[in-house]
Amino acid sequence: MTTTRTTHARKQQWAGGLMLFGAVMLMIAGVIDIFRGIMGIAKDNVFIATNDYIFRFDLTGWGWVTLILGAVAVVVSIGLFQSAMWARISGIVIAGLIIIANFLSLPYAPLWSTLMMAFSGVVIWALCVARPEGAVPRRGTSRGT
């Protein structure tokens, strides 16, 4: 009985660590997107536009989208530091939107967009894998025994 509680406590610590990891990663991605959005709004010529890409956007408008996504990501990450369930769900949605936004901005900053998509994928993974503090694994499943 004690080993089961110890194992469950270790899994909870691991899950809590993943939640904290996801919160920190989302905070970093949000702050970086805020700065990237400001760059796009302040100076359109910071990014090199290609004419061969099927998705063409006004870079000032794209800067506003990136700025807003970054600001929402920062707010959600603050909720994740408090282990709020709304923040977990919102974090997954925001990280998914960041992936889509960075996919669309691949021709303007290919390396950076790829890095941000990977960052956001790790955030989604961390938020999906971590269990809420009160969650107890079901008996009879491979994860719970």
Rank of each mutant, 00 (worst) to 15 (best):
M1N: 03
T3M: 01
R5T: 07
R5C: 02
T6E: 05
T7W: 04
T7S: 13
H8P: 00
H8Q: 01
R10C: 02
Q12M: 15
Q12N: 07
Q12Y: 11
Q12W: 11
Q13R: 12
A15Y: 13
A15K: 03
G17K: 07
L18A: 05
L18C: 06
L18Q: 00
G22T: 09
A23D: 02
V24C: 15
V24D: 13
V24S: 14
L26K: 01
A29G: 06
A29W: 00
G30S: 06
V31L: 11
I32P: 04
I32Q: 12
I32D: 08
D33H: 03
I34Y: 02
I34Q: 09
R36L: 00
R36M: 10
R36A: 10
M39D: 14
G40K: 14
A42M: 09
K43G: 11
F47D: 04
I48G: 02
A49P: 04
Y53E: 10
Y53V: 03
Y53H: 07
I54M: 10
I54P: 00
F55S: 13
R56E: 11
R56I: 01
F57S: 13
D58I: 04
D58M: 14
L59T: 06
T60I: 08
T60V: 06
T60H: 08
G61R: 00
G61D: 03
W62E: 00
G63I: 01
V65Y: 14
T66E: 11
L67I: 04
L67G: 02
I68H: 06
L69Y: 12
G70M: 04
V72D: 12
V72L: 09
V74M: 09
V74S: 07
V74A: 00
G79I: 08
G79R: 11
L80P: 05
L80D: 02
F81E: 13
F81H: 11
Q82T: 00
Q82S: 01
S83C: 07
S83M: 01
W86R: 14
W86S: 14
A87P: 08
A87F: 10
S90A: 14
G91F: 12
G91C: 13
G91W: 00
I92E: 05
I92W: 03
V93C: 06
V93G: 00
V93T: 01
G96Y: 00
I98N: 10
I99H: 09
I100S: 13
I100N: 10
I100A: 15
A101G: 11
F103G: 15
F103M: 15
F103R: 13
L104I: 10
L106T: 13
Y108E: 04
Y108Q: 12
A109N: 11
A109F: 12
P110M: 12
P110C: 08
L111P: 11
W112F: 15
T114S: 15
T114W: 14
T114V: 08
T114Y: 14
L115C: 15
L115Y: 14
M117T: 12
M117E: 13
F119I: 08
S120T: 02
S120H: 08
G121F: 13
G121D: 09
I124L: 12
W125Q: 05
W125K: 08
W125H: 13
A126K: 13
V129W: 00
V129K: 03
V129I: 05
R131G: 06
P132C: 10
G134H: 12
A135K: 10
V136Q: 07
V136A: 05
V136M: 09
P137F: 03
P137Y: 04
R138A: 05
T141H: 04
G144W: 01
T145S: 05
T145V: 07
T145E: 01
